[in-house]
Design a protein around this nucleic acid. Sequence first.
DNA 1: GATGAATGAGCGTTCATTCAT
DNA 2: TATGAATGAACGCTCATTCAT
Lengths: 224, 224, 224, 224
Amino acid sequence: MNRAAPDRPHTITALRRQREKENRTRTILATAERLFCEHGYPNTKMQDIAQEAEIAVGTVYFHFRNKEDLLLQLMDDIAFNIRNILGEAFQNGKTPMERFENAGRAFFEKFCLGHPAHLIILLRESVGITAEVEARRRAIFDRFKEDVHAAISEVMAEYVLSNPLVAEVTSVAIVGMLERVAYQYLIWQDRSGDMDTITTEALSFIRGGLRSVLRNLRARENEG
Amino acid sequence: MNRAAPDRPHTITALRRQREKENRTRTILATAERLFCEHGYPNTKMQDIAQEAEIAVGTVYFHFRNKEDLLLQLMDDIAFNIRNILGEAFQNGKTPMERFENAGRAFFEKFCLGHPAHLIILLRESVGITAEVEARRRAIFDRFKEDVHAAISEVMAEYVLSNPLVAEVTSVAIVGMLERVAYQYLIWQDRSGDMDTITTEALSFIRGGLRSVLRNLRARENEG
Amino acid sequence: MNRAAPDRPHTITALRRQREKENRTRTILATAERLFCEHGYPNTKMQDIAQEAEIAVGTVYFHFRNKEDLLLQLMDDIAFNIRNILGEAFQNGKTPMERFENAGRAFFEKFCLGHPAHLIILLRESVGITAEVEARRRAIFDRFKEDVHAAISEVMAEYVLSNPLVAEVTSVAIVGMLERVAYQYLIWQDRSGDMDTITTEALSFIRGGLRSVLRNLRARENEG
Amino acid sequence: MNRAAPDRPHTITALRRQREKENRTRTILATAERLFCEHGYPNTKMQDIAQEAEIAVGTVYFHFRNKEDLLLQLMDDIAFNIRNILGEAFQNGKTPMERFENAGRAFFEKFCLGHPAHLIILLRESVGITAEVEARRRAIFDRFKEDVHAAISEVMAEYVLSNPLVAEVTSVAIVGMLERVAYQYLIWQDRSGDMDTITTEALSFIRGGLRSVLRNLRARENEG
DNA sequence: GATGAATGAGCGTTCATTCAT
DNA sequence: TATGAATGAACGCTCATTCAT
């Protein structure tokens, strides 16, 4: 294949520019994330972000359409990140249940502990901002929910089809659980030291919940 | 001498005024709740509330310190309401588990279906507004969590004492589930028609989770 | 002479009412004066005055036309009071100069030390409020100035007529001096303990100033 | 290699911007001063200032923190201006008394006649606005007073040390005179045409006052 | 006479966004 | 690309005044 010479002066400059632009974008995004978490989205002024990032306000607007866009891109990054972490964790494990629990453990230990700011953006700062932000937030949770749904479908095997709502509700319940446990112990309190116990208990709870649902499905099948 | 109670007229007038004042307060609160839910807290202007309540802006400020105060009082009312509903539901039932499930069912069927606006205020409109609002929101969830904690303590009997964090995490997990299931099926989607099934599945999941946690506690006890 | 019986029940009641009304008026006025001095006229709300006077806002408006009226009546009281004090002091003394100095001394020792609030109202709180208030303030100073003028006219005897502006300017200068010395040592600083020395020095200064002006007038007369 | 100073263009632009910014600031300040004098500080809206300066409200807030800041900066300018005028006038003259009178004459003829708006701001519009404004006003008068104090110290020579309060009170008295004479004949009345006579008489009065105080100090010294 | 809830025009301030340089 | 001064619609809140009871 014949790729255009990547080292022509023009291209080199272009590449460097590209790289610099991305750097700047990342810097702005990181600054915005920090300020949104520290002072809240509505209390963070574009001016503040520019100042902290050591650039002019106009420059922020060169890289992002507007303030909402900043938040939306942040949310996209977060969504990408969380799927990466959970997806990777889900690869390892022999049984479906094991894979599921690996993912659950990764949620707490890699995502929540590794990126607490992401948690804050997703669970606090992006709530009730705009119809579009709310839609994006919902999309992220829907995807999260569907990932969980896919994972527990393996566990529940054939039973899920009889009534799709059952597995759905279960997924939503699990997501809600993960969410608030994280919010409670990382945002409201800081019990990051006890995260191991907390994770274990939460997963134990989920395991039992899943078994219970499964048992019910089997019972209904036998009846029907 | 037979003097008619000299302050009766005054008191009667004062009482009527008192009553009328409370009515006004309630009207304003109801209007605010509706508008906060419809357009969001930040998008609702004090002017709008006044207009919808058919009074002057100043009147709103006569009854409430400021916009935040309006939200805080709304939250207090909601907290009172939810505790009433759950507390009453918890009275009925023979076994601890039955009482617990009655309360869970009441959460969905009485609180969520009966006062969807309360749900929206608590889970969406009061998020990330102010430090004080956030504190109030946390207090409400803490009390909710503690009620759940008290309820499952009956179920778990003596086991809870060995490691208090276990029951705590379990309570938080249960609250999180209830929350997001409600948010998902009443705010994001409107599946109020399927609420019966949803409730049943959610409670089934929780029941199983509780059993699982309980089983673990027993196992540890036997080991220790 | 045949005055209507002053002790008829109706009249007695009317008198008592009259007395009570005046009492209330005085109470309100005193409260207003205190609050104006403590927090400034613009920062004092009618509500505050009512509250401190332990009556309803409406009652304040029954006794006074509006907030400005409150200030105006206060200023009238002050004007009356100051003229009383100075007029009385001016009675005593053999020579015109002695009488003049008695009045000057009374200004500091009776008016300023006895009614510091009056000083504050007149020199700080009534400045730059309204055209009408400013006019009243000016009227008070004009009268004060004219009193001084009359007093020094006795001292200057026949010389004042040749150029009326001379005695005028002198009066204004004296008034300005008294004013700021009082403001400096009673409002900005509290040197009420040193008031005796301050008074003595100020009067000595005035005496010298007057002599100087007088000497000039005589000189001009001899030239002319 | 011969690189053109790379930050020269940037600096030039920056300098121009700086200059333009200062121009804007001065324009706003001048407009504010005019409006404050014409309609009074409290009656002047930020909107008015913006409109008269032909800019947007936001622009005023870009250059000044708030309305109070506008007044404070105006006061600083005035303080600078008055010290300049008096300081310069004080340079000329052979005897201390001559220098002192030159400064006094400059106060009336250069400061008051040349900048009547400054007088109004200082003596009327900045009174009773805020604690901070009052403090600034006091600071200006204190410095004025101290300048006068320094000037008369030369005249009084060694006598002032015996009792510092004497010279202090004298300074305050002189400042008060200058003030009210200016206020009376330039703000309340417009006798700017007679300013020459007024100045002469006022200074004559002060001269006499100073001599009198001096004579007293000598008398006490001889006694002691 | 007294009450106090109601009024609503008015004002200071904010801040996301733009655009000439 | 970057800058930062300029914009102006928008909003929360105040408070002197009124008036039905």
